[in-house]
Design a protein around this nucleic acid. Structure first.
Lengths: 206, 206
DNA sequence: GTCTATAGGTAGATAGAC
DNA sequence: GTCTATCTACCTATAGAC
């Protein structure tokens, strides 16, 4: 039942790697780290598990690289929307607010507009964030640090806006945005994510 | 290596069942439905998998019964805090607001205070809710219906408060509350869940 | 009510062929 | 760069003993 008798790579190593990462985003978004299998990913790619493991050391490595890739894609997209230069896409090193002097409302509007176009990526973060609440999770530390950095960035931006309590406003804004994301994902297309966020931001960010 | 030569049940069937459910709450809160195993639960209970499967038909049944149990415990606790009578604990049939005429702020304050005492239960809901975004998930329909009912209850309460747009206020309140829960769970005890919610509720609920 | 034993399946990972 | 083959481990579930 062999389809090909000769080993004929249909993709370059780089292209295959990126293709695998995009496929993995979908798999982890659906089942989480504990639930997804490298077999699922390999089958969706049309290769075997052994083939996939040539590109990534193992399941945990695949998770780490997928998150790094997702961050990269996401940060670049948000930065472009804000007209910011010189962003590498490393969320833990860079951040957004550091690179510009936008207000919190502008930053979050750009974030929401970007996310609205990529529900699968939002699902990935939503599920991994909940999974990673456990101290034993492979990316527990990553998500703890990520939250700290986001809150710091948002607080910086809020401070520029002249908000009375920037830390609290940052906490409230992040909470409301992530909560609204869940409603949006759960209701499919019944709610207008961008419009609802705009209304909510007006209540939280003066 | 047998410890006991005779079958000596140390718990009644009812007590064992409830003990299993409480153990399962912790296991699913950590790994989700896809990640937890009935073996984990059985070992934590000090019984075998076969022993556990006498009480529950299988893994999916265990999930469904655990959710039902969690809802029951939760709804009773919130209702008691509100001084409401006649609540059965079935979140999909009952709801909270239908049984009383409290305002939205009061209902949500009681919810948050109840949740603050049971972080494991909150983690269970947070993780399952994200997992269940997938249409294939065993409790996908359950969580969709749950959200619909919560929003309806909250909108009812907001309407009693005389809010201009009760549906939108309900959406915003649920979003903010669930988002804040994630911050609280991620930061362990660094943030005062009840106090932060009070501040956030003041912004959202007039 | 819980056990042993086991069937039957799926998982992650490695070795070596091509 | 991807394959086949295989190992080891783990998981759910069932049958039947006690």
């Amino acid at each position: 039942m062999r389809r090909r008798t000769t080993a004929t790579p249909r993709m370059s190593a780089g292209a295959r790697r990126e293709s695998i990462l995009n496929t993995t985003i979908g798999c982890i978004a659906q089942f989480g780290f504990w639930g997804f299998t490298i077999r699922d990913v390999a089958q969706a790619e049309g290769i075997t598990e052994a083939g996939l493991l040539y590109h990534f050391k193992g399941k945990e490595d695949l998770l780490a690289e997928t998150l790094k890739y997702a961050d990269h894609v996401n940060q670049i997209a948000i930065a472009e929307r804000l007209g910011v230069e010189g962003v590498t896409g490393d969320v833990l090193a860079d951040g957004i607010a550091y690179h510009c002097d936008h207000g919190l409302k502008t930053i979050l509007a750009a974030t929401v507009e970007t996310n609205a176009a990529r529900p699968e990526l939002v699902r990935l973060y939503a599920l991994l964030e909940s999974e990673a609440l456990s101290a034993d999770h492979p990316v527990h530390a990553y998500f703890k640090e990520r939250e700290t950095n986001l809150l710091r960035e948002y607080a910086f931006a809020a401070a520029r806006d002249g908000v009375a309590d920037p830390e609290r406003t940052a906490l409230q804004a992040l909470s409301a945005m992530e909560g609204l994301q869940l409603r949006w994902l759960n209701d499919a297309n019944d709610i207008d994510f961008v419009a609802e966020w705009s209304a909510l931001a007006d209540l939280i960010i003066p």
